[in-house]
Design a protein around this nucleic acid. Structure first.
Length: 289
DNA sequence: AATGGTTCCTGGACGC
DNA sequence: TGCGTCCAGGAACCAT
């Protein structure tokens, strides 16, 4: 389940393997993976042939790379998307993978970019223009204009984020997951941030003090910083980096996925509750109201 | 306008 | 053993 730390790991790998190279051929094996490209699969493949990739950039869970054609190639990994680099060795194996959706081959005939995605929630899209977001000063693909800066973005403004969150009547977890407030946080890091800040997920955001909301976003930033340092969180083979390796953050989780296990702070047993059709994990004692 | 619910997808886990 | 059912979740989209 790639959230910000996992996507950052993929961005670094993509930059190392693919930046600066010129595309020779793009092949799309499942049209759903380019569903946002209205002109269709053929046009998607044709527009990318012959262009050179610039530097890979990330905002929240989105990643893109500017092209020397003036377009931008935007990636979202969804639930299960992977970007893999492989030369002749691992390539045959990857191309037998039934979940291989897109390949990008380069002029230099070196490593191929493989987009693998079991559940096809992820996608690639071509943006024709970069714009300034409402809150940001850095140009981003036009399709991402509604995505707020993440905590690692130079445009990130904690005071503004806290004020925006404070104005919401939704459960605080909904606000944490709202990519137009702060981007990059998903279900795992939301639960971990709430555990660290000792806040119950269902608390109405506007009923929390500014100080507690601030502490919550600082906790989210801390937990993602720590996860980035160890290559992200992996539960299974669904998240791997560009080289096919797993991250190590799972062993550092305090709440997510730990139903029935003792809270690392107070020893009470972690419980699982349903929220918006998905799971939330919390300590029943130190995350009360 | 803001908020909550629905939908897309696949395969592993589980119950009978 | 085999079949049916549930579950995982990001975010676009729709309904209220």
């Amino acid at each position: 389940m790639p959230e910000l730390p996992e996507v950052e790991s993929v961005r670094i790998g993509s930059q190392d393997w693919f930046s600066g190279r010129r595309i020779r051929t793009v092949r799309v094996f499942n049209s759903r993976s380019v569903r946002h490209h209205e002109q269709g699969v053929g046009d998607f493949e044709d527009r990318l042939a012959g262009v050179r990739l610039g530097d890979f950039v990330r905002r929240g869970k989105f990643m893109w790379v500017p092209l020397d054609s003036g377009d931008l190639l935007t990636f979202h990994l969804g639930m299960s998307g992977q970007i893999r680099a492989s030369g002749s060795g691992g390539r045959a194996e990857l191309e037998k993978n039934p979940h291989l959706r897109v390949t990008i081959e380069f002029d230099d005939q070196r490593e191929v970019l493989h987009f693998v995605d079991q559940r096809t929630f992820g996608y690639l899209r071509i943006d024709t223009a970069a714009v300034l977001s409402e809150t940001g000063e850095l140009p981003i693909p036009e399709s991402l204009a509604h995505i707020a800066p993440d905590p690692f973005d130079p445009d990130f403004d904690l005071d503004m984020v806290v004020a925006k969150a404070k104005s919401k009547r939704s459960p605080i977890k909904s606000v944490l997951l709202d990519q137009s407030v702060v981007s990059g946080i998903g279900n795992i890091y939301a639960d971990e941030a709430l555990w660290r800040a000792q806040i119950r997920w269902s608390t109405e955001a506007s009923r929390l003090s500014v100080g507690r909301i601030r502490a919550l976003y600082q906790a989210a930033t801390e937990v993602m910083t720590e996860a980035i340092a160890v290559g992200g969180t992996s539960f299974d083979a669904l998240y791997v980096n560009v080289n096919g390796e797993s991250g190590y953050f799972e062993r550092s989780l305090h709440s997510y996925g730990r139903e029935g296990e003792p809270c690392d702070r107070c020893g009470s047993l972690i419980i699982r509750e349903r929220f918006a059709n998905r799971s939330s994990f919390r300590c029943p004692d130190c995350q009360r109201r």
